[in-house]
């Protein structure tokens, strides 16, 4: 459904990605792991259109979308939960969700009701300013906001960032219910154990290159370790 072909990206003179090839199949859950600064966020930003690339570097359902702006990419059914949540402080919780649903695609799998059913606490706090919520609740808003566009592919950038373990568990509990709708999910995660537990396949990035790829079932922790830190084990 989604492929990248020799995807490169740079910030000014600085090159962050050196030819990344990944694929995501419909309904699949793919984990992307790597140390700080490996280029995970840059990869998601390239896919989602925040960073522009050459057309053929990102291909969605056979169409090159590398040069599409972010708003056109969402309309194709690729939504992103950005790193650091990036809620709109001027908007209430409910308005943050509604703005995610501004582009509604196809059947209404996700509505305010279903998002509130997924994260009941948000219904209670629906009129609060989004940034008045706790970190975990804010993360729920960010996920709900992305779901509101009914994506076929959901990109999640470090949804556990800065959260306590119990809160992380709550957030991850939503993942199976998101996948039930048939959406494919790409998660960027620092916690290797969790990534291997929830995903079907894994890519490990190091310094802008893919150093390991394979099904999580057959990936050993030692292999990940080597790919992660680059020691030639």
């Amino acid at each position: 459904m989604l492929e990248t072909h020799s995807l490169t990206a740079s910030y000014g003179q600085f090159k962050a990605l050196f030819g990344i090839d990944i694929t995501v199949a419909p309904g699949e859950c793919v984990a992307i792991i790597g140390a700080n600064g490996a280029g995970k966020t840059t990869l998601l930003r390239s896919i989602s259109g925040v960073l522009r690339n050459a057309p053929g570097m990102v291909v969605h359902k056979g169409t090159p979308i590398g040069t599409l702006p972010a708003d056109a990419v969402v309309q194709r059914g690729i939504a992103m939960v950005p790193e650091g949540r990036k809620l709109f402080p001027s908007l209430s919780v409910e308005e943050n969700l509604l703005i995610g649903g501004q582009v509604r695609r196809g059947d209404a799998r996700w509505t305010l009701e279903t998002v509130y059913a997924l994260f009941p606490i948000l219904k209670e706090r629906r009129l609060s300013p989004a940034t008045a919520l706790s970190g975990g609740q804010q993360q729920m808003v960010a996920i709900g906001r992305a779901l509101m566009s009914n994506p076929e592919l959901l990109l999640c950038d470090e949804i556990s960032l800065g959260l306590a373990p119990v809160v992380i568990r709550d957030i991850y509990a939503a993942l199976p219910r998101i996948r039930e709708t048939g959406a494919a999910v790409v998660i960027v995660e620092q916690d290797i154990t969790r990534a291997l537990a929830v995903a079907d396949r894994v890519y490990c990035l190091m310094e802008g290159r893919v150093t390991l790829t394979g099904p999580t079932a057959s990936t050993t922790r030692d292999a990940v370790h080597a790919a992660y830190f680059g020691d030639a084990a």
Partner: peptide
């Protein structure tokens, strides 16, 4: 930037 991720141009 985040607004554009919501499909807003």
């Amino acid at each position: 930037v985040t607004a554009s991720l919501m499909g807003i141009n």
